[in-house]
Computed example of a mutant assay.
Amino acid sequence: MALAGLKVIEIAGLAPAPFAGKVLADFGADVVRVDRSTSTMNLDVLAQNKRSIALNLKSPAGIEALIRLCEKADVVIEPFRPGVMERLGLGPEVLLKRNPRLIYARMTGFGQEGHYAKMAGHDINYLAISGVLNERSKSGKGQVVDAAMINGVNYLGSFVYNMNKAGALFQTPAGTGQLDGGAHFYDTYKTKDGLFMAVGAIEVEFYKLLLKGLELDEERDKLPEQTDSSNWPKMKALFTKIFLGKTQAEWIKIFDLTDACVTPVLDYYSMPTPTPAPRLLRTPAKASASNEGSDVFLEVGGHSKDILAEAGFSEVEIRDLVAKKAVAGAGLEKSSL
């Protein structure tokens, strides 16, 4: 597999960091999730192809154990707000001193510095506020990768930003433009059975196919020019009425495999099972065995003993960590080490 042999330490956290770890694991990396030894609940549903070690990061012995694990790792992924890892004694200056080749990947909402740096947030906040990695094989040195979600949203918006700067997009009030809900040919429409279809027929040739599927004729029905925004509200009302006349399945049959750019809006129950991306022909990723029920969860500390042993901890050292309550895991306390 493409990332076979890559060792990754993932500090347990919420969705973005676990997803990054899942991508690496799906492509063959050995991803070890560091859980809290006191954790009684596991909410991570992105744990496929990973292993878990449960450490007490409030214990000096637990901190040192994690540092030793990082000494033999290629990548560490941390999901906390700015300053948390430093307060634990696990900041970049500590880990990179022990392992200069380590890639230290940080995941925050608003970045390490700035007005909102220490504030909690979710997707909608990052969207509201928004306006990589050099391979160490070239230099022999690792580095800090600071990935803030607000910066990611901003970066993904490069196309929109540059188009808007050039005067090609969003020169009208919000909700009245071509791509933000104003145009009748770029929106979603409710169907007879309460489901939805998405329409994205921007180009002229695609728009003509859209009209054909809706059984409309520009000349016969005296339709206005596609780009005449003054008539967009009227056209949107017409499209709304027409789409309500058929079920989603009927519209799928009409538009399927055409270039009209009309597709169904899938719900969580009908969407395809998520698979690793991108697809590699020679070294494909390993698909998750199951995405249902308890199989999506990873037992907290289920691999603690094996992970420590692989990192070079002796039986005496492991027993000492257990005694100090620096590590936990299924069977460790009763283990005959």
Rank of each mutant, 00 (worst) to 15 (best):
A168E: 11
E215R: 06
L216W: 04
D44R: 08
F19L: 13
L321I: 08
G293L: 12
Q48E: 09
I11T: 01
P264N: 04
T283A: 11
N154H: 13
E310A: 13
I129S: 00
I318P: 01
A4R: 06
P276T: 11
L102V: 04
E71N: 11
A323D: 14
G312F: 08
A117V: 10
I150E: 05
E113V: 04
L169W: 10
S288E: 11
S314G: 15
Y269F: 10
V265F: 05
G111I: 12
A61D: 07
I67V: 15
K190W: 07
T273W: 12
M1R: 09
R87Y: 12
T240V: 07
G301I: 04
K208N: 10
G157D: 03
G302V: 05
L57G: 02
Y126C: 01
S139V: 05
A47F: 04
N231H: 15
K241L: 11
Y155C: 04
E205C: 03
F243L: 02
K325Q: 15
Q143C: 15
A128Q: 11
F80T: 00
I53W: 04
E317K: 00
N49D: 07
P100R: 09
L298G: 02
A174T: 10
T40E: 14
L90H: 02
V94R: 00
K165T: 14
P60T: 11
Y269M: 11
N134C: 01
L214V: 02
M197S: 05
K165Q: 14
K97H: 14
G301S: 10
A166K: 15
D44G: 05
F159A: 13
T38P: 01
M271F: 06
D320T: 09
Y161M: 11
L66F: 14
A330R: 13
G140V: 09
V300R: 02
Y269K: 11
A20F: 03
E250P: 03
K325N: 15
A20V: 06
P276K: 03
E315R: 06
F185W: 12
P16F: 08
F196D: 03
A148Q: 03
K97Q: 14
Y189Q: 04
S139F: 07
Y155G: 02
L179Q: 04
S59M: 12
K305G: 00
I63P: 02
